[in-house]
Design a protein around this nucleic acid. Structure first.
Length: 774
RNA sequence: GAGCCCGUGGUCUAGUGGUUAAGACGUCAGCCUUACACGCUGAAUAUCCCCAGUUCAAAUCUGGGCGGGCUCACCA
């Protein structure tokens, strides 16, 4: 028996049941096609946010739907564990520790985070096979990542080199472009004068006077009248150093004074000029953001150096003026420290020369929606440098190589997984001892092989059915990272595409349309929602959340509606349950055929929508079919038969009610698995999970009498009349006069009489009109 | 500055050549109707951002403009 209310306890009961019975276990059935999902491994922050709920719901719908369609659905779940935020939190808790011990603490901490996230995912009703979990921090995962790097090294795709890289002075680590954010801030543009050999003063403008010790040239726009006489001459900087003056087309004439100093690694434009004009390199910043090679300012932090150097120029009158300037600076996305460009020894992967190949492979993949591929192409076109894959961190996958400091020779590690602190000693052919690399991998190195990991790479036999993966669900914002790198790495390691379809999701914004952020305090968490709404309501919200790859504000309205829809289905089911009895199909009436055919149409449409991952269309169709066609109309049409009909009539109605409900809850099962499961087990007394049943198909088509439409219109008119005259809908009416262009047969006339509660009905030819008499 | 996406009742969305422009929330009126008042029956509310063009026909296609979002680039 169904209880009075649908609630979270029912859902938890089924969540336990599915776990216990391993309902979603991946077992390979002969002859069934494979459907493999390369699920995003969430970063193990410990919290599942609304973005996760949205995107994970999407592929959970897909997984459940495909299972019912008879696929071998392989749906593993991974965890992206190694990252900066974890190090920060562990360090905060335990302080600085030796690497091995520190890493151990990180692992313990992460395990707790995984536990809480997994719990949240189970509560959302997600259906991965938990037997197939992977964690990027596991030695077995390290081994695969390291093996992949060695394979790529053998193909000359990985190299060690000295190159300017983005550098976070706070973290003391190289960064990839993707680890950076832009932040707008106010600063000062300082006008400082230099003098030429004749002692004439020229002002330059700079926001970074502390880099002046690294000034190697002064440049202006070609042909600038103010400065062209300086071409080829020397100028003396405010620190008394002689540097050359020349012109370059990238100088903005109207910015500052039109004259600028080029400093080594002040920013990316400086790097370009240094390379273009073959200027000497002076390193003035060390890896922790302190000055060096400057004599007077060595050891000072950048900010201190800036203050001190400005004070000096002010004192000796070289600082002419300061102007307020708002500028955009690149900061490290994790710690928000402004980043520097620095030359250092790092490991690189050759994405630049493979940009075209990556684009070619991306083209072989189906992008949903199609425009998603633009993000990748744009990114591929703008790649300027190779991918810096090394990071100077502890909690990460060690880069599995030795190098010789003397001759630069590189040797891949033989024993994997490789950990530098436990590495065997190795000597170089030049006689020197080789150094095991202590840097770790960028976390995208870990996550860019997920489709390989889940398919059992490099074991070709295992991969046969599981690679390439069928579906890669992911966010739009990580196309340039996760999708881009995965396509690159898969091409490098297998020559193939990693997956056949990419399903792109957008972000969930706060209800006010802004980004959810802790500082604004507009964050909505699934945990809180679950206190007031059933899981299946939240899942329905996800399904309703509009088209793919589009940001959408979170909508309590949709969520509330979803919850009332569950209640509606529940109550309708209770009504059906109440009238249980013999089910026998004898003679279906026209209204019965109509709703059965509507059910058929719903099956067809919903199936089409799900095939195209158009979940919002699927759920809308299901909602309007059930609520308005089935409940508001059909149930009202048959109540008189249920209450007053003969046993035979009742049996007929029951046949229809159960048929429609059965199909409906199956169609709903991917989106609302708990509700469907409960109704399935109680009303249909089935032992097997509905989530393993086969997908509904159209068993029998029904010809729907044209008169049904007239009948529905007439009933609507009567309802309107009753509403206008403040009558309850069950009020009895004396007489109904209907003008109709067409005729309606005896059966439908009887229906109208019974459904609308009329004593007498009279049909006349004419323009459609309905006249009631009380 | 560049690329992409978008602009539809008060709000959020659906609709991509012919619909009475659909739905939810909200608003208003009525109905405690033997599943459901977390309900039911109705009603009101839209120059489909603007301008021009293509077409028998444009919310839908093309061009231009205005506005918003995302991504990238950029100011020494």
């Amino acid at each position: 028996m169904l209880g009075t209310r649908y609630n979270n306890e029912i859902e938890e009961k089924w969540q336990d049941y599915w776990q216990e019975h391993q309902t979603y276990q991946f077992t390979e059935h002969e002859g069934k096609p494979y459907y493999t999902i390369d699920t995003p491994p969430p970063f193990t922050s410990g919290e599942l946010h609304m973005g996760h709920v949205l995107s994970y719901s999407y592929f959970d719908f897909a997984a459940r739907y495909k299972r019912m369609r008879g696929y071998n659905v392989y749906y593993p779940q991974g965890w992206d564990t190694q990252g900066f935020p974890t190090e920060v939190r562990v360090e905060k808790k335990y302080g600085r520790l030796p690497p091995a011990e520190f890493r151990q603490r990180c692992v313990e901490w992460t395990e707790k985070m995984i536990e809480s996230m997994k719990d949240a995912m189970v509560k959302m009703g997600f259906s991965p096979d938990w037997n197939y979990q992977y964690r990027t921090m596991d030695p077995s995962y390290h081994e695969k990542v390291q093996f992949s790097l060695i394979e790529m090294y053998k193909k000359d795709m990985i190299y060690r080199g000295k190159h300017p890289v983005y550098w976070c002075p706070k973290c003391g680590s190289a960064l990839a472009k993707t680890d950076t954010d832009d932040v707008e801030r106010d600063t000062f543009l300082n006008y400082i004068y230099f003098t030429d050999e004749e002692g004439i003063k020229y002002e330059i403008a700079t926001t970074r006077p502390e880099l002046m010790p690294a000034c190697v040239a002064v440049i202006y726009y070609p042909g600038d009248e103010r400065y062209k006489h300086l071409e080829g001459k020397q100028i003396i900087t405010a620190l008394g150093k002689k540097v050359p003056v020349f012109s370059d087309k990238d100088v903005l004439k109207d910015f500052g004074t039109g004259l600028l100093m080029v400093c080594t690694f002040g920013d990316k434009q400086d790097v370009i000029w240094v390379n273009r004009h073959n200027l000497p390199v002076i390193e003035v910043i060390d890896k922790y953001g302190r000055m060096k090679n400057t004599l007077d300012f060595d050891g000072l932090k950048l900010r201190e150096a800036k203050e001190k150097i400005l004070a000096l120029f002010e004192e000796n009158g070289k600082l002419v003026k300061k102007e307020k300037l708002s500028q955009v600076v690149k900061v490290h996305d994790r710690c928000k420290t402004p980043i520097e460009l620095m030359t250092s020894m790092q490991w690189f992967a050759n994405v630049k020369e493979n940009a075209l190949k990556i684009k070619e492979n991306a083209k072989k993949i189906k992008w949903i929606p199609e425009f998603g591929i633009n993000y990748l192409n744009d990114w591929a076109d703008s790649v300027e440098w190779d991918w810096v894959i090394s990071r100077q961190r502890v909690f990460g996958t060690p880069i599995p190589f030795y190098y010789c400091e003397k001759c630069g020779k590189i040797e891949p590690a033989k024993k994997l997984p490789f950990y530098p602190e436990k590495a065997e000693e190795k000597s170089c052919s030049c006689g020197e001892k080789m150094t095991p690399e202590s840097s770790t991998c960028d976390c995208w190195v870990d996550s860019s092989i997920t489709p390989l990991i889940v398919s059992g790479w490099p074991d070709k036999e295992k991969m046969k059915n599981l690679y390439p993966a069928t579906l890669r669900p992911q966010g739009v914002e990580i196309i340039r990272t996760w999708a881009f790198y995965t396509i690159y790495r898969s091409y490098a390691l297998t020559g193939d595409i990693p997956f056949r379809e990419v399903l792109l999701n957008g972000n969930v914004l706060a209800p006010d349309g802004k980004k959810m952020s802790k500082s604004i305090g507009n964050v909505i968490s699934p945990k809180d929602l679950l206190k007031q709404y059933p899981t299946d309501a939240i899942r329905q919200w996800a399904a309703m959340s509009g088209a793919m790859a589009k940001d959408r504000p979170f909508s309590y309205e949709d969520l509330k509606y979803s919850k009332s829809f569950l209640t509606k289905v529940w109550n309708a089911s209770r009504f059906i349950e109440m009238n249980k009895g013999e089910i026998k199909k004898r003679k279906l009436r026209k209204v019965d055929q109509w709703i059965l055919q509507e059910t058929n149409n719903t099956i067809k449409e919903v199936t089409d929508f799900l095939e195209r991952y158009e979940f919002h269309h699927a759920i809308r169709k299901l909602q309007s079919f059930f609520w308005s066609d089935f409940c508001d109309d059909y149930l009202e049409y048959v109540k008189y038969r249920i209450y007053e009909g003969s046993e035979e009539e009742k049996a007929d109605v029951r046949y229809v009610l159960f048929k429609v409900l059965e199909n409906f809850i199956k169609l709903m099962a991917p989106i609302t698995p708990h509700l469907s499961e409960e109704l399935w087990s109680v009303l249909f007394e089935k032992k097997e999970s509905i989530n393993l049943c086969s997908w509904p198909i159209v068993e029998e088509e029904y010809e729907v009498d044209m008169g049904i439409e007239f009948m529905r219109r007439i009933i609507k008119q009567v309802r309107q009349y009753k509403a206008a005259n403040q009558l309850p809908q069950n009020a009895q009416l004396q007489f109904l006069e209907v003008f109709l262009e067409d005729s309606v047969d005896e059966e439908l006339q009887q229906e109208i009489k019974r459904i609308a509660k009329l004593e007498r009905i009279e049909l006349k030819k004419g323009e459609f009109q309905v006249n009631c008499t009380q």
